[in-house]
């Protein structure tokens, strides 16, 4: 006998056991008795559309056993908002409690992503972002590239208008720690360009600042493509001619016999040259260098870039 079937508080519920799908189901799971029972009570309360304190407790039990169970999370959110208290104060209190419980669950299950959607629903209802930035930073201490946490962070910035509340400095800190953290670069782009109605890098001052930022990062690690992509993105969106970057890129591309310090510089140099009057042949030379020596694994791609420029290809790759 299980926890629920023995509990007089649940005596009014007739559990709905699992339909296994025939006598010989594929990829079945030999559920523990505890999980099977709890699920059978969940099915029953969902069928009756019951939203109550005891259902909240039931969903917590299930999430402890299986945090990847999206249905339980979605139903828990519905319950929480239905029974969260009679007064505004009570509602706030219950949402705060929910967040505290979520903090532990999120730290225990780093890769789980249902948690983040749920957290978004809760914080949205709560209407306060207090403590959230700090909590998210705790998550990034463990994995600074967690896709769902970054997605949540973007939502926070948008929902609570945090564009100028330290976000830029935050990305600077993370990029300072690991210049190859592309998630942090993407967030920086979002903070600079994502605000509705903002000019982003189309504003000259912002553009200059961002170009400078990218160039510094490239100087520290020329082989890191994050910085190069960011620089190219800023130039494109900001309406700069790529030619304005030529002197900088040239330091790393070694076209005039200097040292090639980054294949990404050669790639960008080929783009810059192709935009110059009469520069296509020279662009082709940069692409040949990539193909033959500096990035041979992408040989076919570099060859195709020459085709895009209308230059003759060297024939089928050997």
């Amino acid at each position: 006998m299980g926890k629920y079937s023995q509990d007089p508080q649940w005596a009014d519920i007739t559990p709905l056991p699992t339909d296994e799908g025939g006598p010989n189901p594929l990829a079945a799971i030999a559920y523990s008795d505890e999980y099977a029972e709890t699920m059978s009570y969940l099915r029953a309360v969902m069928a009756a559309d019951e939203k109550s304190e005891r259902v909240l407790a039931l969903t917590e039990d299930l999430i402890d056993m299986n945090p990847a169970h999206y249905t339980v999370w979605l139903y828990r959110a519905e319950c929480l908002f239905a029974v969260g208290g009679a007064t505004e104060q009570e509602r706030q209190k219950s949402l705060r409690q929910e967040l505290e419980w979520l903090n532990d669950t999120a730290l225990d299950h780093q890769k789980n992503y249902q948690i983040w959607h749920h957290r978004m629903l809760v914080v949205d209802k709560l209407g306060s972002v207090e403590g959230e930035q700090e909590f998210v930073e705790q998550m990034f201490d463990k994995d600074a590239k967690n896709y769902h946490v970054w997605s949540y962070r973007q939502w926070m910035v948008r929902r609570f208008d945090l564009w100028e509340k330290g976000e830029l400095e935050f990305t600077e800190g993370l990029i300072g720690r690991d210049v190859r953290n592309n998630s942090a670069w993407n967030h920086r782009w979002f903070v600079v360009n994502g605000r509705e109605g903002s000019e982003g890098v189309k504003d000259k001052g912002v553009r200059t600042r961002e170009v400078e930022f990218a160039m510094q990062a490239i100087g520290r690690a020329p082989g890191n493509q994050c910085g190069w992509n960011y620089l190219r993105g800023v130039a494109r969106k900001g309406g700069m001619g790529l030619g304005e970057l030529k002197v900088f890129v040239g330091q790393f591309a070694g076209l005039e016999g200097g040292e090639v310090r980054s294949s990404h510089a050669l790639d960008l140099m080929a783009e810059i040259l192709a935009e110059e009057e009469g520069g296509r042949e020279e662009a082709g030379r940069a692409l040949d260098m990539l193909k033959e020596k500096y990035d041979p694994i992408r040989r076919n791609y570099w060859e195709y870039r020459k085709v895009m420029l209308g230059l003759p290809a060297a024939g089928a790759a050997a």
Partner: peptide, 13 residues
């Protein structure tokens, strides 16, 4: 496609 033991409850969804 065989039956998974109880710890595989994480694939239940």
């Amino acid at each position: 496609l065989d039956t998974f033991p109880a710890p595989y409850v994480a694939i239940d969804a």
